[in-house]
Design a protein around this nucleic acid. Structure first.
Lengths: 112, 112
DNA sequence: TAATATAGTTACCAAAAAGTAAGTATTGCG
DNA sequence: CGCAATACTTACTTTTTGGTAACTATATTA
């Protein structure tokens, strides 16, 4: 498949934050640094496995920083990097557009 | 799953354009109105089935208009609605961010 | 009359993503 | 000693997504 390799910059962005789990994680971490357990409780419906996977990918992508404390029971804190925080503008744009769209659709339904 | 129902506006947006096929279709139709076959040839790697599915969903979502001509062989033209065109700003934001990110990553690699 | 072109649809199969549930590691505490 | 707490990891299963290839419908054209 020719489109498998991510070429276009839009696809780059999409591959980094184009799914709901990453958006949820981003939203939580934009608030503040959080621990693994906090994230798990905050994002209802996500499994440990998926949360770990997404966080690891985001770490690899340079969006998230993972800090492990040498304690028992273990403590791991996740925070956004500068690049990660810069995604806020994208989320804001999507938020604004989505809100607008929902309002339009709502009005449309009432007209029927 | 509590997050299945799309609540947050960001998710609304993501559900409408959060995958590569829809982005590709949007890119083609932002150029101009195109026929089914044109889209199929322009978007390398997409199958007829998937193209149809995505177009139908986008039509349902009010992003795309489907115009059927009563001809044989059949002619069907797809174009963006006003709402569909308004997604350009989102794509542009993603394009800009993605380009920036790629440039950063590229520089980073050279530093190693 | 038979082939052609276009825009699909359908049945079947493969791959990817995500959930479930159980297991791991470690140290402090009772 | 044995249990609690936290952050995972792993094996297995389910769900979702998408591909392939064959089939359809029909006016026009040779």
């Amino acid at each position: 498949m020719a489109n498998k390799k991510i070429g276009c910059p839009v696809e780059v962005t999409l591959s980094l934050v184009g799914d709901k789990w990453k958006v949820f994680i981003l939203k939580e971490l934009l608030e503040r640094t959080k621990r693994f357990g906090e994230l798990h409780r905050a994002i209802s419906g996500i499994s440990q496995k998926t949360l770990t996977q997404q966080l690891r990918q985001m770490e690899k992508d340079g969006l998230v920083k993972r800090k492990v404390y040498a304690e028992v029971p273990p403590r791991v804190e996740y925070s956004l990097t500068k690049i990660g925080r810069s995604l806020k503008s994208i989320l804001d744009a999507m938020h604004k557009w989505g809100g607008n769209y929902a309002a339009l659709k709502c009005k449309e339904q009432q007209d029927e």
